[in-house]
Design a protein around this nucleic acid. Sequence first.
DNA 1: TTGCTAGTGTGAGGCTTTTCACAGATTCGT
DNA 2: ACGAATCTGTGAAAAGCCTCACACTAGCAA
Lengths: 240, 240
Amino acid sequence: MVEKIWYLKRCDLFERLSTDRLRAIEARCSARKVARGNPIYLPADEARGVLLLASGRVKICSVTAEGRQAILAFIEPGELFGELAILDQLQRDEYAEAAEASQIILIPAAEIQKLMAELPDVSLGVTKLFGLRRMRIERRLKYLLFRSNRERLIHLLIELVEQYGYLVADGVALRIKLSHQDLANIIGSTRETVTVVLGDLQAEGFLRLGRRKITLSNVSSLAKSVQVKPPRIEGVTPGA
Amino acid sequence: MVEKIWYLKRCDLFERLSTDRLRAIEARCSARKVARGNPIYLPADEARGVLLLASGRVKICSVTAEGRQAILAFIEPGELFGELAILDQLQRDEYAEAAEASQIILIPAAEIQKLMAELPDVSLGVTKLFGLRRMRIERRLKYLLFRSNRERLIHLLIELVEQYGYLVADGVALRIKLSHQDLANIIGSTRETVTVVLGDLQAEGFLRLGRRKITLSNVSSLAKSVQVKPPRIEGVTPGA
DNA sequence: TTGCTAGTGTGAGGCTTTTCACAGATTCGT
DNA sequence: ACGAATCTGTGAAAAGCCTCACACTAGCAA
């Protein structure tokens, strides 16, 4: 059995709770492992609670009638997802799948609601979480509307650098592996177009391509080309 | 001077507060009127507080470098906007303008934060507000990604019916007046394309066009054509 | 009434993006 | 180590959408 409490403590929302309190929550939670590519919840599933990602990586998607997969977000270890269940939203209309082998913890909605009622800190934390997610998605909407695929892709790369970038000898690399298909699924384009545009950007010297790997050699001029201020880059190591 | 307290009471978030409490809040708020087409806040403005729309209609927009206006949302009387200020987000990156002559009330962020800290109900209300807005925008992102302009427009029409539709003799009319340019600004297209697509839909018998006015004659088959369940339509009158 | 403005209708031409088809390369599972 | 699956690169043809240019109408203001 997984040490659930250890992971609970790593989530912003719970880090300030007492160990006793955490033990109590832990008792109500269940954990499970999901292999890469497998679903965690489907739109049809009833939303019984909130999920916490202990390890791995999760993507939140929706699928069009023609079978195209739109990627709405990636979730990193320590982050909550499926959190609309907190609002007694029983039905979700997106689904979550493991982008890598993952361990997840299911926290019953009632548990969070109880915490929110008792501890204003938690309540505020949830509000902030919602606000943050909303800002992210609003920002994405803005850079998708009216923009060419080239611009969309550049904006996405900059966002990825902000979230996953780390410095290497010859530029900035990403701590996340994405195929061209994945990138297309985020910006609402096709795999082929992404391949071509990335090829162009490489030819123009903005980046270097590897298999599921992109190294940005000139983030700031790339940012300037879409009139956006260059992102801050986390100074250090590749991480786990 | 406007009867601010009257309007505060009409906002979901405040409706359960005592009159005394409301008086106290009222004392900290300021009200102003804005004529159609004028800005309410700009991206550069510091976000001093949250805004409550007392009357009129507001649109939340962002502008691309090439001067295209993306409409992110409409705000109706009784709704809050600019609410990210609650999270001490000092800088906004969208702007708000009056879509019709409007009266707005500015509530200092500190006031809301105090309420949230003292009253769990308010705190939950804010969380719900954030969650709701996020669901809306996520839904929009989903119907924009990978979709043709025709599909985007149909989805938008269905959303508008849900929010603004009322039954009339020959179908469903909308309680909001939008030009083709407005519609284009919502779905990220151009005025001409919207005109053409609406013309097609009219020819196919789905709707009838008037000046800044659309009457849907067959909402359910329109919904079926994009594989969406038909929206509920508010049963009655045109409203104010 | 007479402008004037905002909103709508239409078409030609060109650019962007998708679609389809296939080939080579790398990684993964067993 | 081997075959299978995944990932990337490329090109031709077609579809979709945007740009630009202009005409017409309804509503508003003086």
